[in-house]
Amino acid sequence: MTDIDKQTDPASIELLSFRVGGQDYSVDIMSVREIRGSAKATSLPHAPFFVKGVINLRGTVLPIIDLAARLGLQADTDKDRNVIIVVDIAGRTAGLMVDAVSDILAIPSEDMQLPPDLAADETRTFVSALTIVDGRMIRILDLDTVMPPQGEEAA
C-alpha cells in the first residue's frame, strides 16, 4: 500500500503518527526502522534527563529517549503501555518512547505548514512542520534535534 501511494503521489509524504504527552506528533516513515513494545531500560549514569537508558535490541545496544520528557510534556504515567519507535537519526539508531502509535498518514506536501514563531515555547524547535488531519493538528518532529549532540555526551 505504501509503495503504491508513493508512486501515484510523489508530492506526498508518509508519516507515522503517534501520541506523546497527550499531543499528536509524527515522523517521516522512512526514518522508522521498527516499532516495538517497551522493555526495562538500563539507565546510563550522567545521562541527560530525557535519556531513559539503553535496551537490548536483538543484540545491539539501543539508547531510549523519553520523548515526553524531551519535549517538556507531561508524561503518561502508565509506563507499561508505552511503545518504542526505533528510528534512524543521522546515522545513529535510537528508540523514541511514546504513549501510543496512531496511524500512517500520507500528507500532500502543500498541506504542510511551517510552525508559527513562538519564542516562549520550547517544543517549537523540535517541530519542523504542522498539518491538520480530521480536525486534529499533527506536529511533524524534527528528528535531528531530538538526540543530544554527540559532543554533549562525550564528557
Binding site: 546510563l44 550522567h46 545521562a47 545513529r92 539508531t93 555526551e153 564528557a155
Partner: peptide, 9 residues
C-alpha cells in the same frame, strides 16, 4: 557507536 561515551563506563 550507538550512544556515545559514558564517564566511568
Amino acid at each position: 557507536g550507538s550512544y556515545g561515551r559514558v564517564p566511568g563506563i
